[in-house]
Design a protein around this nucleic acid. Structure first.
Length: 569
RNA sequence: GCUCCCAUAGCGCAGUGGAUAGCGCGUCGGUCUUCUAAACCGUAGGUCGCAGGUUCGAAUCCUGCUGGGGGCACCA
């Protein structure tokens, strides 16, 4: 399938060169030519404003330039007319015959509709979710999960070979706390005298899931673990937690090819090698306080033991960061830098990392670390998704894994549907804060955009259920009307939306496009009937062919968003 | 205080420097004996937070300000 903006831009460029060669336009450098569908139908199907940009360099009035460009415009099978409008827009109209033929092209491409070659031969990695196995996935994590997986799908559709990766840490204080928490729940479930910490105890995980784990653990091991410390409990909880997380992700159609354990960076010695490299570069110093600290800070740090600091200020950070604590253990920063260095060494052409907005500072420090290692950080693209807040009964819910006050992704799916959750979390710019109004999502289920879009696919499927005895092979597409062509025009924009989403890593564009496409479809469905006594067999055949193409487009778009394309609702 | 994101219709949000700024919900009024009415048609609703600047042209780019949210631990 053609990417029409590009095709038109090529024509314009050829026309400008031709006009210059003929002496009808003066010499000037040709800028990047942008062509896109204008807002209003009377302004054509595609429009270029390049003549307006050229007025200055060419020292001519834009209308004249546009006229000359139009005059030299080469012919193309997809263009039927070129118009020039004041103050200097060049408007194209698609050739109706060509347009109608696209119905067959769409059906031929099928599930690979607008499969692009942007990333062919290239490897991309998308890292997302990356939650430590301390609790079920909550809503805050879910947004990054959906955005990450959707980006992966879009990259696949543009030809990339994509790996989805999940980075996690199963060591550290939080996991010890988790082990301890399960241990207490285990003893509690055995009826032993234990004191469960209060809700404000930050070392205890209060979630009910640990009660469940404790019961299962007793079923498996009885009371044989009574004398054990936190470790076997931590190991048990970790395995169980990952099972749950994977199952939850599967429910929303997400799976990761690689689970990368932070520990492996210690096992391989990578963490210390990175530290050594940073030290060699002169980016590390030992002190009880960062350089350039003010008097107040110095006073506070007077009694601290020395730690190792990364001089990230060299790269524009506002303060240096501790990489090795005074107790000799690295902070999260060091393995994080090692992890990203590892990613780069694995030779991906594109690295995408989905992070919550609260990790902004962290990713900056990691980036400075990569620079200090003299590695190319330009392949790393970080998508920061703004925080999600749950609104319930009109009030903001506090989310805290430790306190057990969690709105989990599972709850959300149970109360709505996997497709609805995906769409709601996807259909927003990542930069925009998202208030997930649970009451509205549940109550307005029938008006949720997800069903509006899926219903278009369902309606197509409904037609084919009723017409299994009619073949649409060899349909005469010239019988199709203007309404159907409005839809085909919109459908042909999918490739551009896809390319834009991939290049800019903005998957929400697909979500909005899907809704626009459905809103073009539904009115047509109402008026363009297949089974009606006043529709001739030939016309019915042509319309059937049209709906087959429409169904292909909706299925492709829904798949790109990781949603199902149901036959019935 | 430093920093990141946001501010567009009553509410929730799109908007890639171009032509008369859009969509959903909600308002009001219509449409099912015909392939799914989870739909369609019509209606009302705007100082694009404020003030400057750049440009032939600014919701979009720059500066400042105001308001809301996030981040600024030897936690991850």
């Amino acid at each position: 399938m053609k990417l029409l903006p590009k095709e038109h831009a090529n024509l314009v460029e050829q026309a400008i060169r031709a006009a210059q060669a003929a002496g009808d336009l003066p010499a000037f450098d040709i800028p990047e030519i942008e062509v896109r569908p204008p807002k209003r139908p009377e302004q054509g199907d595609y429009a270029a404003s390049v003549a307006l940009q050229l007025a200055k360099p060419a020292k001519l009035n834009p209308f004249h330039i546009a006229t000359q460009i139009a005059h030299h415009m080469p012919a193309a099978d997809f263009v039927s007319a070129v118009e020039v409008l004041h103050p200097g827009f060049i408007n194209f109209r698609l050739n109706p015959e060509w347009l109608k033929a696209q119905v067959d092209s769409i059906i031929t491409e099928g599930e690979n509709l607008f499969q692009l070659d942007l990333g062919v031969g290239k490897r991309a990695q998308v890292e997302f979710v990356s939650a430590n196995p301390t609790g079920p996935l909550h809503v805050g994590r879910s947004r990054g999960a959906i955005v990450g997986d959707s980006i992966a799908r879009i990259l696949e559709a543009t030809g990339y070979s994509v790996e989805r990766e999940y980075y996690f840490n199963n060591a550290g204080v939080q996991m010890t706390n988790l082990g301890n928490s399960l241990r207490l729940r285990y003893l509690e479930a055995l009826g032993m005298p234990v004191e469960i910490p209060g809700a404000d105890d930050k070392t205890f995980y209060h979630g009910d899931y640990l009660r469940d784990f404790a019961k299962q653990l007793i079923a498996e091991k009885r009371n044989t673990l009574v004398e054990e410390d936190w470790l076997p409990f931590k190991e048990y909880a970790e395995v169980k937690m990952f099972e749950i997380i994977r199952t939850t992700l599967k429910r929303v159609n997400i799976h990761h090819e690689v689970f990368f354990n932070e520990n492996s960076l210690y096992d391989s010695g990578a963490v210390w090698k990175i530290l050594e490299a940073l030290e060699k570069g002169g980016y590390v110093y030992e002190s009880n306080i960062r350089e350039n600290a003010d008097e107040e800070e110095r006073e506070k740090a007077k009694n601290y033991a020395p730690a190792k600091w990364f001089r990230s200020t060299t790269f524009g950070d506002k303060e240096d960061r501790v990489v090795v604590k005074s107790d000799g253990n690295p902070t999260y920063t060091l393995p994080d830098i090692a992890y990203h260095a590892n990613k780069i060494e694995r030779g991906f052409d594109l690295l995408v990392n989905i992070l919550g907005a609260d990790h902004f500072t962290q990713h900056q420090v990691v980036k400075y670390g990569i620079q200090a290692l003299n590695m190319d950080s330009s392949k790393i693209h970080v998508i920061l998704v703004q925080l999600v807040r749950m609104i319930k009964d009109g009030e903001v819910q506090k989310i805290s894994t430790r306190a057990g006050a969690i709105e989990t992704l599972d709850d959300l799916i149970d109360q709505t549907s996997a497709d609805a959750v995906r769409y709601i979390l996807l259909a927003r710019s990542p930069d925009s804060h998202l208030d997930f109004d649970l009451d509205a999502a549940v109550a307005q289920t029938n008006e949720n955009p997800v069903y509006y879009i899926q219903n278009a696919h369902v309606r197509c499927a409904g037609i084919f259920r009723q017409t299994s005895d009619i073949s649409d092979d060899g349909a005469d597409l010239s019988l199709l009307g203007d309404a159907e062509m409005t839809f085909i025009r919109k459908a042909l924009e999918l490739g551009d939306v896809l390319e834009f989403s991939a290049v800019n890593l903005e998957p929400h564009k697909i979500a909005f496009y899907a809704h626009e496409l459905a809103s073009v479809f539904h009115p047509i469905y109402d008026n363009v009937r297949v089974l009606s006594t006043d529709v001739s067999p030939d016309l019915a055949k042509a319309r059937l062919r049209f709906y087959r193409a429409a169904q292909v487009v909706f299925k492709r778009v829904l798949n790109l968003m990781g949603m199902t394309a149901p036959e019935v609702m």
